[in-house]
Design a binder for these strands. Sequence first.
DNA 1: ATAAATCAGTTGTCTGACAATATGTTTTAT
DNA 2: ATAAAACATATTGTCAGACAACTGATTTAT
Lengths: 240, 240
Amino acid sequence: MKIDRPRRLPDEIAKNISFAIEAGQLKPGDRLPTEQALSDQFGVARTVVREAISLLKYDGVIQSRRGVGAFIAQAGGRSAFRISPACFEKRKQLVQLLQLRTGVQTDASALAATARNNLQLAGIGGFLQEMISAVAQGGDAIERRVDAEFAFYRAITEASGNDYYVEFIGMIESKIVENLRSVAIKNARAAEWGEDVLAEHQTVFDAISARDAEAARIATRIHFERAAQRLTDRADIADL
Amino acid sequence: MKIDRPRRLPDEIAKNISFAIEAGQLKPGDRLPTEQALSDQFGVARTVVREAISLLKYDGVIQSRRGVGAFIAQAGGRSAFRISPACFEKRKQLVQLLQLRTGVQTDASALAATARNNLQLAGIGGFLQEMISAVAQGGDAIERRVDAEFAFYRAITEASGNDYYVEFIGMIESKIVENLRSVAIKNARAAEWGEDVLAEHQTVFDAISARDAEAARIATRIHFERAAQRLTDRADIADL
DNA sequence: ATAAATCAGTTGTCTGACAATATGTTTTAT
DNA sequence: ATAAAACATATTGTCAGACAACTGATTTAT
């Protein structure tokens, strides 16, 4: 059981304001209440409010002008892509997020097929062998299977040679496992594992090995679409 | 000429620390100097240092424990995808960024081909017509051309039905135009425009109109790869 | 009427203090 | 001597107030 972390006040305030913006209570161009008013409203010190506003400024959600005030920025001006925890509370958003992950991972595989070198291919193949042996062992090797799968696709992404793919997929992946009660999902996914899933990975590897970008794209897409299907089919997620 | 915005101290400090992490001076697990030490080192008040650290905490770059200190987080734990301005100073990173944009936009087009409704298609076609007429008018309609192109692909992305694609591409796009001295690039791109580029867009539209996802993917990829080529070929970017 | 000076309001920064928490040290009880 | 408890210390988190820098509007002087 995970202990609930001690909340930080500035984060709470930032979330509060952020929700107000998403809900449409504060529209682009509107002026935020003064820091003094906000600190009174939330019952915290002004430094806390300042830190909260500073976070939102960092993301480009609001802009402030000294001597004037803070304003809600235009919708297009975001300077960071951040996955809010709320995504995992609504089924539609979760599906969209998995869809995005699938698309990016697919591109990464296609890139890797042409950009990879032999050393990287060997590394990727090593994780595939790890998965195969873990499946053969069965039973108590659940963790090994799942970890190897993560490593497998991470190695593929790294072989693409594009650091942004690595960073982006890493971020999405960590957010997904963090919010979907990782252990339960891990077990669930591991339990569903069989030879067929292994064949999906094998196909991906073969395509990258053959430097066939299109085949890699198709194989990766098939796997992640099925994985997303298996994930969203689960009972504990279906009723979101 | 762009006026240099009044620097904000916390942002400067955050950048400084962030660079130190990227440069490897501070590795995951390392402990940050105390807030007091940092405020002495940078010659600012502790509140400023606190805001800076708060930003990095928000991105998951560092974690802090009350009574102990602040620590560099593991590389995989980022909770936001942010494009640092440094990307635009190195040619390799810029190419990678454009590659990522191309991949995601390509997926968005493919999705739009199947998910679009007729109303959205009409909107997309409208922007295509806008581009055609602007090109036909020639000369002083440069802004119209470029704005219509942005709107065209934005409309396609929205037609994909996935909000994350819209948000992600919008963020990347705004960062690109912001950092590549938008006006100069706009003019450059507009000057290079001709019937051939228009044909690229037309092909994309036709594929989406025909609900042909693969054709849409290919056509979009062709356009953006060529666009990236044209962009990086420019002299003022070539010598980064 | 126009321009300059003044003023009130807001954000940005500084300073100092205290609260909350973790770690290491010392004291005390057994 | 050992273990537990109390204490001291260090660090982050929060609070409170002040002043600086800046903006926009108001007032005043010419």
